[in-house]
Write a protein that binds this DNA or RNA. Structure first.
Length: 933
RNA sequence: GGGGAUGUGGCGGAAUUGGCAGACGCGCUGGACUUAGGAUCCAGUUCCCGUGAGGGAGUGCAGGUUCAACUCCUGUCAUCCCCACCA
């Protein structure tokens, strides 16, 4: 009758923990205890609810926390919701209902689903990024960032009030000072291209644009510039990379972040421009295709070029390398300054500011057409179509500072305006892309690196003849006085020489770009920013931060959430949309807000609110701080509390956040650190990525594949304990692994066996199994118990939950067959089991006669003496093959092992008549004979 | 093209610093108890040969180091993920 019935046990204990506030966390760690902050990546509360993949990480952290509490640590274990986001906004557009309503419904469902799993969160700390009282502080942090500039000398963010203002700027007046500051803030405005879909009247994310058309509806999409907010994350690139050293993260994730930051060291070099408009004879040469080689050769030593170059070089060596390049030079960035002598042409990006200036009259049409076409392409198009590199000559020339030779300047979209200086020197002999381009267009290729024997002799000949590209290191050739230098040395030397002549300098570049921080959406945090208007209602360009006391800036009431209907243009053909009268450009939904929200008046001045909203990342950048002090209405977090709990000791979540979320959060944290809001330079000490749970068919779980498993169904049939146990038993936390219903049944069976270990299933009511007795445990029983204690404790520490469970199964197997079992041993076992399967553990703990919850019961102590075996089995190998096994005391030394092995009859037979060459005896491990004959 | 991860029975997966390959579970086979079992208990279960004792092979593939290799080294194949013209 009293079978294991999870359906009655689980609600009972959930109610008990709730009522007794078992998992409430005090404001500060209890004095004399070590703190432990364990954090899950909080979910986006989607309408579909949790699927079994979500709780994988939650269960793992919960086990860690439950065990840690029993080990006497003060545990912080909170949960919340990352609730801004597109799906809720789309739902609102469809239904006209405020997204908050749907969002709160979804949160309620998520919370319910988590609660039936008994994840031991302190729910009093729950938060959602959409809570007005939460995003009030998100806005506050934005203002901190806005109020900060980055001091490159000190490598830290400082208040804008401490920014030194140069005298000439100060003299130019208040607006000049303001502009000077605005250009240096960590939050600044710029024109950035967005994907604008006129038919949908909305701006789309890159992922929503497929082949130049909107993902939904297939409407045309144009890229066009829009004034937007950026965060200067690039200022922190160096620290974001360096500080990875000190954190305990998977190497793969660190590599991913380093790769994303993409630090490279090279040189910036100035090339003198000649042949720009008005420079007379120098641009008589049209850089042709086939003919380029001879033209180039002719131009090399033209007297005019030599003369101009000579004086320029002299000037530079006196005045040094200027901070910003003058009008007369084209500045490039290269990681291979050692190939400078092999540069045969230059390329600038179609968006480069010099395009117009460098384009000669007869190239004008061609260049304009090319740049216009490039502007229409999305980033994706540009890389996809790049199988064939394209470009047009500007008609202008540049002079190579190391040898005074002339080279044509091209425009090509294989050069990115956003990296380096947006201009390159092309070294086709030693760069794949330049090689491909030069080959296609018949440009000159000169080898300046001898690969030596890094390639086959035949290949080397090709390289030297300019018929093959070689990008590796080698020895310098065709490089004047530098000939013979190995690549690395050459780089150093020429960089120093260029610097000495004021022609170049060492430079560091990052792939990381500043963070585009505004979205043209409704369902996000409004910016606490006001734009000043003049008497006629036009923006003056001055920006004002909302006063801290006026936070939060809440979202306004809107009649409907539909985006503006744009005019039906033929966008791909239209390049100058903004100039058309009937054009209504991208306008965020907040522009439809009522005037009293949109146009506040402060001190007699009229303002317009910023109507962009923050991206979804914003809320997740600092939630781990708010959990510590969620009710605080004077600060995002109390400094005393922050100091006591930070950093997060263990952070568990999916690998999909390996780059962006973790980089953004680290960035904000560092700004807050510089500004004294937090006390640690890094927020997350240890990071673990849980793997994906696949469907039973080994495919990713998705609605469309129809292989989604809902945890509710599993809990209903097998109980939360079985679900928890199964998810942990499936395999290593980090690995991807397929779901198996039979596997769930397997752990369910195990729990039934545990149940019967303690409870008499034949009795009419729940009572102890008569086999449970009060007697001291035998040596064997103690050994099994203590080996289990050791293994489970270690496995929890190393997050190897699957093996911890298998050890508990072994324990159960041992005691199932025993005719009786000591109560004390069972009790200790239940404590070990409780972090994994807390409900059944509590129930059985109570059945054993305990009155109190075991949630804060001390963790069983491991006694090595009791775990010791009196004899152990040792394999004996002969020539690497196990031929027998011997029983010896665990502390037997090498001599005793060998003697015991020789005494073994089977070994004696194997050794008979053979010569023993060598004997290896490793105490506690094995004996190995090497024999001959 | 660059970076990262992973390859072990029919399946999920175990295996301190190199030291008994296959723990634990699923599945399967046989048996017990049963009117019955998707319950429970017992035994077996990497493959090949052998009734058996035992022998041989075996951790994607090919080599190497070692008394000893899933583990270390070299090469190679496959799968997955991320980034992708970053000069």
């Amino acid at each position: 009758m009293p079978r294991y019935n999870h359906a009655t046990i689980e609600p009972k204990w959930q109610a008990y923990w709730d009522e007794h506030q078992t998992f409430a966390t005090p404001r500060l760690p209890k004095p004399g205890t070590r703190k432990l902050y364990v954090l899950d990546m909080f979910p986006y509360p989607s309408g579909d609810g949790l699927h079994v993949g979500h709780p994988l990480g939650y269960i793992a952290t919960d086990i860690v926390c439950r065990a840690a509490r029993m080990q006497g640590r003060s545990v912080m274990h909170p949960m919340g919701f990352d609730a801004f986001g597109l799906p809720a906004e789309e739902h609102a557009i469809k239904t006209g209902q405020h997204p908050r309503i749907q969002t709160e419904k979804n949160i309620a469902n998520f919370r319910r689903q988590m609660k039936i799993l008994s994840l031991s969160y302190d729910w009093s700390r729950e938060l959602a990024t959409t809570d007005v009282e939460y995003f009030r502080w998100t806005q506050w942090i934005f203002l901190k960032i806005y109020d900060t500039w980055f001091d490159h000398e000190q490598q830290r963010g400082r208040p804008i009030s401490e920014l030194p203002i140069p005298d000439d700027v100060r003299a130019a007046g208040e607006d000049a000072i303001r502009a000077y500051q605005d250009e240096r803030r960590l939050a600044y405005q710029t024109e950035a291209p967005v994907n604008w879909c006129p038919a949908l009247g909305t701006v789309l994310a890159n992922e929503e644009v497929i082949d130049g058309k909107s993902e939904r509806g297939g409407h045309p999409v144009v890229r066009m510039p829009l004034r937007q907010w950026m965060l200067r994350i690039t200022a922190y690139a160096d620290r974001l990379e360096k500080d990875l050293e000190g954190v305990d993260w998977p190497e793969g994730i660190k590599a991913l972040q380093r790769n994303w930051i993409g630090r490279s060291t090279g040189a910036e070099v100035d090339f003198f421009i000649c042949g720009s408009a008005g420079a007379g004879d120098l641009h008589d040469f049209k850089p042709g295709l086939r003919g380029a080689q001879t033209i180039w050769a002719d131009a090399l030593h033209s007297a005019a070029a030599q003369e101009i170059f000579g004086t320029w070089k002299q000037d530079r060596s006196k005045s040094g390398f200027p901070r910003t390049p003058g009008r007369d030079v084209l500045r490039i960035y290269t990681t291979r300054p050692d190939t400078l002598f092999g540069a045969t042409y230059m390329v600038i990006a179609p968006e480069h500011p010099y395009v117009e200036r460098l384009t000669t009259a007869d190239q004008k049409d061609e260049v304009e057409a090319y740049c216009a076409a490039a502007a229409r392409k999305s980033d994706l198009d540009r890389t996809e179509l790049a199988k064939e590199k394209t470009g047009v000559p500007t008609g202008s020339w540049a002079i190579n500072p190391v040898n005074g030779e002339r080279m044509p300047i091209w425009i090509a979209d294989y050069v990115l305006s956003t990296y380096g200086t947006g201009a390159i020197m092309a070294v086709p002999a030693h760069d794949e892309r330049d090689f491909e381009f030069a080959k296609r267009l018949g440009l000159l290729i000169i080898a300046v690196v001898d690969p030596g024997n890094a390639v086959s002799p035949a290949e080397r000949e090709e390289v030297l003849a300019g018929q093959r590209c070689f990008v590796g290191d080698g020895t310098a050739i065709n490089s004047g006085k530098y000939d013979g230098l190995p690549t690395a040395k050459f780089k150093e030397k020429i960089t120093a020489d260029l610097a000495a002549h004021g022609l170049g300098r060492q430079a560091v570049n990052y792939k990381l770009r500043d963070w585009l921080f505004s979205r043209q959406r409704f369902w996000g945090e409004p910016f606490p920013i006001l734009h000043e208007l003049d008497a006629s209602g036009k923006p003056t360009g001055r920006v004002r931060a909302v006063d801290e006391k006026d936070l939060p800036v809440d979202l306004p009431h809107l009649e409907d959430f539909k985006p503006r209907q744009g005019s039906p243009l033929a966008p791909r053909a239209e390049l100058h949309l903004a100039e058309r009268d009937d054009y209504t450009g991208p306008e965020p939904p907040l522009d439809k807000a009522p005037d009293e929200w949109l146009y506040p008046v402060i001190a007699g001045k009229r303002y317009k609110r910023e109507t962009n909203t923050m991206p979804q990342w914003a809320g997740s950048c600092w939630y781990y701080l708010r959990f510590l002090d969620p009710q605080n209405d004077r600060a995002p977090v109390d400094p005393e509390i922050e100091k006591a709990w930070m950093p997060v000791d263990l952070y568990v979540g999916g690998a999909e956040h390996a780059v962006l979320h973790l980089l953004y959060a680290r960035f904000w944290h560092k700004v807050l650190y510089d500004r004294g809001v937090v006390s640690t330079p890094e927020p997350f000490q240890k990071l673990v990525n849980q793997g994906m749970i696949l469907g039973e068919n080994m495919e990713k779980m998705s609605k469309s594949r129809g292989n989604v498993i809902n945890p509710d169904a599993i809990v209903a049939e097998y109980g939360a304990d079985s679900l928890r146990l199964y998810e942990m038993f499936m395999g290593p936390l980090e690995a991807a692994k397929p779901w198996s219903m039979q596997g769930v049944n397997g752990v369910f069976t195990f729990l039934n066996r545990v149940w019967r270990l303690v409870i008499d299933e034949w009795a009419d009511s729940v009572q102890l199994n008569p086999a449970v007795v009060d007697r001291p445990p035998t040596a064997d029983e103690n050994r099994v118990l203590h080996q289990t204690i050791l293994a489970v404790s270690d496995d929890i520490r190393s997050l190897a939950f699957n093996t911890a469970i298998s050890r508990m199964m072994e324990f159960t197997n041992y005691f199932t067959t025993a005719s009786d079992r000591p109560r004390e041993v069972l009790g200790k076992f239940l404590l070990l089991l409780s972090p994994f399967a807390p409900h059944i553990a509590e129930e059985l703990w109570q059945a054993l006669g305990h009155r109190q919850s075991l949630a804060h019961e001390p963790w069983p102590e491991f006694d090595p003496e009791l775990a010791k075996q009196d004899t152990i089995e040792i394999p004996v190998q002969i020539n690497g093959k196990v031929r027998s096994k011997i029983m010896v005391p665990p502390d037997a030394d090498a001599k005793q092992l060998e003697a015991a092995a020789r005494a073994d009859t089977r070994i004696a037979e194997w050794l008979a008549g053979k010569q023993v060459v060598k004997v290896i005896a490793v105490p506690g491990r094995l004996v190995s004979f090497v024999v001959k004959g």
